[in-house]
Each structure stands twice: as structure tokens, then as C-alpha cells.
């Protein structure tokens, strides 16, 4: 396995770029959270009635 070579180059974000990156990260987190909620809602809607009304 080869190791990545550190060239010493780094990127410095301007305050505007850093803020934009933070906002984008927040939106991505919100999108992921929404996706999880949607899957949960779909699952509960599909199995909900069967879970409540079942033979014991």
C-alpha cells in the first residue's frame, strides 16, 4: 500500500468561503436527516397498522 505524499500545500479559505462551506454542510446534514425521517415515516406508515392490530 502506498502512502500519500504530503506536499505541504494547504488551502486557506476566505471567511466567505468558510461560511459558505459551513452553510452547505448544514444543508447536507438537514437533507440527510430529512431522508432518514422519510424512510422512517414510510416504514411506520406501511407497517404501523399491522403492528398495532395483530394476533398475540
Amino acid at each position: 500500500m502506498s502512502e500519500a505524499r504530503d506536499t505541504g500545500e494547504r488551502v486557506t479559505l476566505t471567511p466567505e468561503q468558510a461560511a459558505a462551506r459551513k452553510r452547505r454542510g448544514q444543508w447536507m446534514a438537514l437533507a440527510l436527516f430529512t431522508f432518514v425521517i422519510l424512510i422512517f415515516v414510510i416504514t411506520m406508515t406501511k407497517i404501523g397498522a399491522d403492528v398495532v392490530v395483530r394476533d398475540l
Binding site: R10, V11, T14
Partner: peptide, 8 residues
């Protein structure tokens, strides 16, 4: 390293 330096 803090030999940073380019901006996007």
C-alpha cells in the same frame, strides 16, 4: 504544516 497557502 502551516506552510499553507493558496485560496480556492
Amino acid at each position: 504544516s502551516d506552510a499553507s497557502v493558496s485560496s480556492l
